[in-house]
Design a protein around this nucleic acid. Structure first.
Lengths: 158, 158
DNA sequence: GTCGGCTTTGGATAGTTATTCAATTATTGC
DNA sequence: GCAATAATTGAATAACTATCCAAAGCCGAC
């Protein structure tokens, strides 16, 4: 299973250098490059890489890598959303509880989701201005908080 | 068929302001906004608008408007639409009035919208082959015209 | 070693989106 | 006005993509 990362790189470069309009055709290119996988796996790879499919407007569709800029831009928005709603955090070994201003729990949860943090398994936003962040096995609340600080300089609990 | 351009604008703004993960859910939002169409039509709209569907990496997929780079191509279309409809311009301190060929006011207004110009507050297209372009405070008609010339080499009033 | 947990994968399939085809509605040219 | 032409649309369906589930594969702890 060591091949996976290698394959991801190849997928990435194929998408950058070719105009690919379906997973099947990408599958072929991959096969030519020596990586035989199924469409199911490829679909997962594309999801992982955040590859997008867009129309050129007339004749068809093609896959594209997210630009670095876009990624940063989107993260900036997430950070803004987070800060706008954030009131306080607490945590234990496996759950982080974020309190938010009234009506902000949804946007804060979404923001955390969109930051794409390793530690985060998922979030739910409650009715009560609270967001629960479930952490991936092996991650502790401290890890998450540390990672969040890394992403958001203005964020400093206590 | 007058509704189409109007609908396209609504689709665009819905995509910018919501996290939409399927055409069906967008269809619902559209219906709430008063536009009842089928998935087939929506698919065509999205193709026309070059809307993309990308993964956030973890939890799902969402639709997104094309980013700067990708928009170059689309801007070319807008320029074509503009030139195809354009007859003459006049302006004062805060409003630019564009006269167009018969039936082109909608497409010219949309084109101006889509060029995403700083100076532009908004546009309306009248029945009478005229488009009003409202300028942002601090912008003057001359600024707008200059910016337009910058974008469209073939465009030269008088 | 081998047991147990986590990851990765393929086959099958569910789910989603694009397109075909026919009908309808606008538009253009007399 | 009318006829011819082009645009737009919905229903049905084809095409494509994501996910479920079961089956390995890959560790590390014993």
């Amino acid at each position: 299973m060591k091949e996976r990362l290698e394959r991801l790189k190849v997928v990435k470069s194929l998408i950058k250098t070719h105009r690919i309009d379906s997973q099947d055709s990408l599958l072929q290119l991959l096969a030519e490059a020596g990586y035989s996988v199924t469409q199911a796996t490829l679909s997962r790879d594309l999801k992982y890489l955040k590859v997008g499919k867009v129309a050129d407007g007339h004749s068809g569709y093609y896959y594209t890598m997210p630009s670095e800029e876009e990624r940063k831009e989107s993260e900036k928005h997430s950070i803004q959303d987070f800060l706008r709603g954030y009131v306080s955090v607490d945590w234990n070994e496996s759950i982080v509880v974020v309190r938010t201003f009234s009506g902000h729990s949804d946007s804060v949860a979404l923001a955390i989701d969109n930051m794409g943090m390793e530690d985060v398994l998922g979030t739910i936003s409650g009715r009560d201005n609270v967001v629960f962040v479930a952490l991936r096995k092996g991650s502790r609340g401290d890890d998450f908080i540390a990672a969040l600080k890394g992403k958001i300089p203005e964020f400093d609990p206590e």
